[in-house]
Amino acid sequence: MVKGWHGWVGTFTGVALITVAVLPLAALAVWALARRRRATGSTPAWAWRRSLAEVGIVYGTVPWVWLTMLPGDRAGAVPGRASLVPLRDLFAILSSEPVRATVQIVGNLLVFAALGFFAPLRFAALASVPRILALAAGCSVLIETAQYVLRLDRVSSVDDVLLNAAGAGLAALVSRRWWRATARVSSDRPRAGPVPGG
């Protein structure tokens, strides 16, 4: 059972339950945004695709970022810790605790997966795997820096950055087949007519 505010917002179980609970609201947000865009003259395909991408980025990313920022038991009492040697932490945990390592790897791959999947569908400028990798890596560096500065009793690791970026890149590859469809649908959007008297 989840008890108290901390149980809801300060634990993995609480965050997972909140994420599931707000799924209907996320679906409603997609519908409302698409309906508003259709009312302004957008084509149905463009309106739905863009609305789904916007909500998907937020809904699929915020809970994971929230989890990465949960403080440990000794938060504030211990100094920030950093691991800057690539793959050292990953190999160490794989050799000692394979189950925990698997969970950690999968979790890190999912942090920016929604961003990698939906961002190219929403923003034409991000319709490139290298750009998605750079964006996810930059966001991950910000998270790791915040963990270190805020002394959250977490290890700020370069391996997390690599895995976060890799997850976003893989998700972008999965959605790549729809990038051109998005560009085509966007080109079908109604354009503003000439200004009267202009």
Rank of each mutant, 00 (worst) to 15 (best):
V2E: 06
K3T: 10
H6N: 13
W8Q: 08
V15I: 14
L17W: 06
L17M: 11
L17P: 05
I18H: 14
V20D: 14
V20T: 12
A21M: 13
L23F: 15
L23I: 14
P24V: 09
L25D: 12
A26F: 06
A27F: 10
A27M: 03
L28R: 14
A29H: 14
A29W: 03
V30F: 04
V30I: 07
W31M: 09
L33V: 13
L33R: 09
A34G: 09
R38I: 02
R38M: 05
A39E: 15
P44E: 11
P44T: 01
A45T: 08
A47F: 03
R49Y: 09
R50Y: 02
L52H: 04
L52I: 04
A53D: 08
V55G: 12
V55T: 12
W64P: 00
W66A: 02
T68V: 08
M69T: 13
P71G: 07
D73Y: 07
D73G: 13
A75P: 12
G76V: 06
G76L: 05
A77C: 08
A77G: 14
S83M: 15
S83C: 04
L84H: 11
L84K: 11
V85G: 00
P86D: 10
P86M: 10
P86G: 12
L87C: 13
L87A: 13
L87D: 11
L87M: 12
D89H: 03
A92W: 13
A92S: 14
S95V: 07
S95W: 13
S95T: 10
P98G: 11
P98T: 15
R100D: 00
R100G: 14
T102M: 10
Q104H: 12
I105K: 12
I105R: 10
I105N: 05
V106S: 07
G107K: 03
G107P: 02
N108R: 00
N108T: 00
L109N: 02
V111T: 10
A113K: 00
A114Y: 12
L115T: 04
F117I: 02
F117M: 06
F118E: 01
A119M: 05
A119C: 04
P120V: 07
P120G: 13
F123C: 00
F123I: 01
L126H: 08
A127G: 05
A127R: 00
R131P: 05
R131M: 03
A134Q: 06
A137Y: 05
G138T: 08
G138Q: 04
G138E: 11
L142P: 00
I143W: 02
E144I: 02
A146V: 01
Q147W: 04
V149W: 04
L150P: 00
L150N: 02
L150G: 03
R151A: 10
D153M: 01
V155A: 04
S156C: 12
V158Y: 01
D159E: 13
D160E: 10
V161G: 01
V161M: 13
A165Q: 04
A165M: 05
A166M: 02
G169W: 08
L170M: 04
L170F: 03
A172R: 03
A172T: 01
L173K: 03
L173Y: 00
R177M: 01
W178Y: 09
W179H: 05
W179S: 01
R180L: 08
R180Y: 07
A181S: 09
A183E: 15
V185R: 13
V185L: 15
S186F: 04
S187R: 14
S187G: 07
D188A: 11
R189P: 04
P190D: 09
A192I: 11
A192M: 15
A192S: 15
G193Y: 07
G193E: 15
V195T: 14
